[in-house]
């Protein structure tokens, strides 16, 4: 079976690769989104904690 024949899938290539292609696309997008969302929240929380700690320390020194 040649490569062209494999992708042709006996005339069902559009349906098969349309299905698997969309699935792969959606999963890559979702996995990337959640990873970005986690990293963004982590950075913001760390920045916030550092900022509040700095404000606290200033208050203590006064």
């Amino acid at each position: 079976m040649g490569i062209g024949e494999f992708f042709h899938m006996g005339g069902h290539g559009f349906y098969i690769w349309g299905s698997y292609g969309t699935a792969l696309f959606l999963m890559i997008v979702e996995a990337t989104w959640v990873a970005k969302r986690r990293n963004k929240a982590k950075k913001e929380l760390e920045r916030m904690e550092a900022e509040f700690a700095r404000v606290d320390n200033q208050g203590m020194n006064r």
Binding site: V34, R38, K40, A41, L45, M48
Partner: peptide
Amino acid sequence: RRAQAVILERKKVAL
């Protein structure tokens, strides 16, 4: 992974 993001986001609001 999403649950982790939500935990951090809610911690941020609480802080």
